[in-house]
Simulated assay, not measured.
Amino acid sequence: MSLTEQFNQAQADSKNLPERPDNMTLLKIYALFKQASSGDASGDRPGMTDFVARAKFDAWAELKGTSSENAMQQYIDLIESLKD
């Protein structure tokens, strides 16, 4: 199975995890997905009043320079670790 196929399967698996991950893990999942699918963070950082969007943007921005393939693999590994 190709990396992209594994990534797509991990996306599907992420919707059926045995329990909801904690917020920090959810941010990591989001950031890895965005890095893998869109590359480095772009656009303006959300304002102070939008806490959720700002946290998501910051988590994504921390992965700047990570290759799409590397982010995909980290995403797959993270989802796999949460399935147990």
Score class of each variant (00 low, 15 high):
36 A>M: 03
46 P>W: 09
50 D>P: 00
62 E>D: 15
29 I>R: 05
50 D>Y: 09
59 A>I: 07
40 D>T: 12
45 R>I: 12
46 P>Q: 08
56 K>E: 13
54 R>C: 01
57 F>C: 04
43 G>P: 08
37 S>T: 15
28 K>N: 05
52 V>N: 12
32 L>N: 12
67 S>M: 00
62 E>R: 13
51 F>L: 11
40 D>S: 14
49 T>E: 09
52 V>I: 14
48 M>Y: 10
58 D>R: 08
36 A>Q: 01
39 G>R: 10
33 F>G: 15
45 R>N: 04
44 D>I: 06
50 D>F: 08
62 E>H: 09
35 Q>D: 13
31 A>D: 08
58 D>F: 10
43 G>N: 06
42 S>R: 12
59 A>L: 01
56 K>N: 07
29 I>K: 00
61 A>V: 00
60 W>R: 00
67 S>W: 09
35 Q>F: 14
50 D>I: 02
40 D>R: 13
47 G>A: 00
45 R>G: 06
57 F>L: 05
27 L>E: 02
53 A>S: 15
46 P>L: 09
67 S>D: 01
32 L>S: 07
38 S>R: 14
28 K>A: 02
42 S>W: 08
61 A>I: 02
62 E>K: 15
65 G>K: 05
42 S>G: 14
61 A>S: 11
55 A>H: 07
35 Q>H: 13
45 R>D: 08
34 K>W: 09
54 R>I: 04
64 K>C: 08
60 W>K: 02
44 D>P: 03
63 L>M: 11
47 G>R: 00
27 L>P: 05
58 D>W: 09
28 K>V: 01
39 G>I: 10
37 S>Y: 15
28 K>P: 02
60 W>Q: 04
52 V>L: 10
36 A>F: 12
60 W>I: 09
49 T>R: 08
65 G>C: 06
33 F>K: 12
63 L>F: 10
67 S>Q: 02
67 S>K: 07
66 T>N: 11
52 V>F: 05
52 V>H: 02
62 E>S: 13
52 V>P: 00
35 Q>S: 03
66 T>C: 10
41 A>V: 13
57 F>G: 02
40 D>A: 14
29 I>S: 04
35 Q>W: 12
37 S>C: 10
27 L>G: 00
45 R>V: 15
60 W>H: 10
60 W>Y: 04
54 R>Y: 01
64 K>N: 13
35 Q>G: 06
62 E>M: 12
33 F>I: 06
59 A>D: 00
37 S>Q: 13
59 A>S: 01
65 G>S: 11
46 P>R: 06
59 A>F: 04
59 A>P: 01
39 G>C: 11
42 S>L: 06
64 K>I: 08
60 W>S: 01
44 D>E: 10
57 F>D: 00
65 G>M: 05
62 E>P: 02
35 Q>T: 10
65 G>T: 10
51 F>R: 09
48 M>A: 12
54 R>P: 03
42 S>E: 11
53 A>Q: 14
30 Y>V: 03
55 A>T: 06
56 K>F: 07
30 Y>N: 15
63 L>H: 06
59 A>R: 00
42 S>M: 09
49 T>Q: 07
39 G>Y: 11
37 S>R: 14
